[in-house]
Design a protein around this nucleic acid. Structure first.
Lengths: 254, 254
DNA sequence: CGGGCTATTGAGCGCAGTCAAGTGTTGTGG
DNA sequence: CCACAACACTTGACTGCGCTCAATAGCCCG
């Protein structure tokens, strides 16, 4: 799975990037940590392992040995029932922690797959646990992330149960827009790394319904669709449709 | 909200019940803790505050100052969107921790309401935090509970998106049956503390659809319905319909 | 015993799913 | 670099599940 490039180094530049110099430091795991703690983290992080589009980080049932953070790229978390029914439960962007739902068991309850070529930072659990004994803020940060994940799930459930197909797609776009924005990217230009199929699974819709919604938004004049490149031309119209979705507030706070 | 009875005492017997003597000790928060830690917990727990059916523990936005555990009774967690759309995201039974989704912010993102007359144990956050510095197992336990909550949400999402109305109701009954069973109660006799309306909200269905599903189960001969008292007469038939729902495995492990 | 609420059941309709055909896009090998 | 194959997406027609609305029946409280 892992393509072979030197550990501890960015595969593009072959240079080691420290947390202090990382573009994600305002957003990523260490955002609330003191300088000394970040320095301690530096010592145990393996940087910039890279994966290709479609690579699987782990499957349900795998043993987990590390805390993984997306440095660049994106991923999906998918849950599969014994019946074979599958459900994408979250999309992950740069700065997100992966495998939070499996943290306590150390055994994956879902699978994570990369949606594009991606790099990750790896923190081995033993070293992390040793570190968090000295720095309780690390545990706090983990707990905070877990709470966010719960709140996100609940919001998604609310949307799935109470909103129409069009509204759900609007919520999805708004959420993505907010998350891109908080990463310093444009609010209006969305680059989807996931397929229509994956969006449909996430929102509990049929793929055809997602297509129809996007086409409708284009007809209604507030979105331009060019395959995976979307442009929101009237943000307020989108928000009106999504009706002040709570995801956005959360994503903005992240 | 709180009815006035002496703190630290069971309102029925007026006797203080220690964690060691509590019927829930196999299931409740301290289940994985060492004797010394439980003893330390004892010192900071306020026991047996009681609430009446319909009482609200807290509303979204309220400041949270304590960790709350249901000692007896049941409750629901409800999330309300700015649009007014409401969604019940979980039902809580004895031994459950309340307000996990609001833990990190110390400010409720959802509201908790009791479904019947209930008693709770209260652990003030400051005392709890002080204690967990000395006993990291406490933090571990919290993290474990949070992970379970995430997994539960994801399972529910999966059910809502992939299962028919009948299957969802079957999943709900099976889940409840498992949770009752792990609390030492019957697997077959279910006593619903929630209304059809609340079940419908939880499952993302209309109340009428829940009624219809229950009537159908009765016609099909594996369930007897007498208002809030249900009896599962063919458990396997129910499981076949719910198709090995993952909730059950989780509830059994709790 | 009556009032109010909750649950059940029926009739009809609409949203979104399914199926299928057609179009566009991407990646691969000649 | 082009041709082709495989795949992803769009769009249309039709169907059906579950929602809505409404009327009736049952339960629980004072």
């Amino acid at each position: 799975m892992t393509t072979s490039n030197p550990p501890y180094a960015n595969p593009w530049t072959n240079k080691v990037i420290k947390c202090q110099d990382c573009g994600l430091k305002k957003l990523c795991f260490p955002k609330n940590l003191a300088a000394a703690e970040i320095q301690a983290l530096e010592a145990i992080i393996t940087r910039s392992q890279s994966y290709s589009k479609g690579d699987c980080l782990y499957h349900a049932g795998d043993l987990l040995t590390d805390l993984i953070i997306i440095k660049s790229g994106s991923a999906k978390t998918e849950r599969v029932a014994e019946t074979g029914a599958a459900q994408i439960v979250s999309f992950h962007l740069a700065g997100d922690l992966l495998g939070l739902d499996s943290l306590s068991k150390r055994k994956a309850v879902s699978s994570v797959t990369f949606l594009e070529n991606s790099c990750v930072c790896v923190i081995p659990y033993p070293a992390f646990n040793a570190l968090s004994e000295a720095a309780p803020q690390l545990q706090e940060e983990i707990i905070s992330r877990l709470c966010e994940e719960i709140a996100n799930s609940h919001n998604l459930m609310l949307a799935m149960n109470n909103y129409t197909a069009d509204q759900r797609v609007a919520v999805f776009l708004q959420e993505l827009s907010c998350r891109q924005h908080s990463r310093g990217l444009s609010k209006e230009l969305l680059h989807l790394s996931m397929s229509r199929n994956e969006i449909a699974s996430y929102l509990g819709l049929a793929p055809a319904t997602v297509s129809r919604a996007l086409s409708k938004f284009e007809r209604d004049g507030f979105l331009q669709v060019a395959n995976k490149h979307l442009q929101i031309t009237d943000y307020q119209a989108l928000v009106n449709l999504a009706l002040a979705c709570p995801e956005c507030a959360l994503a903005a706070a992240t």
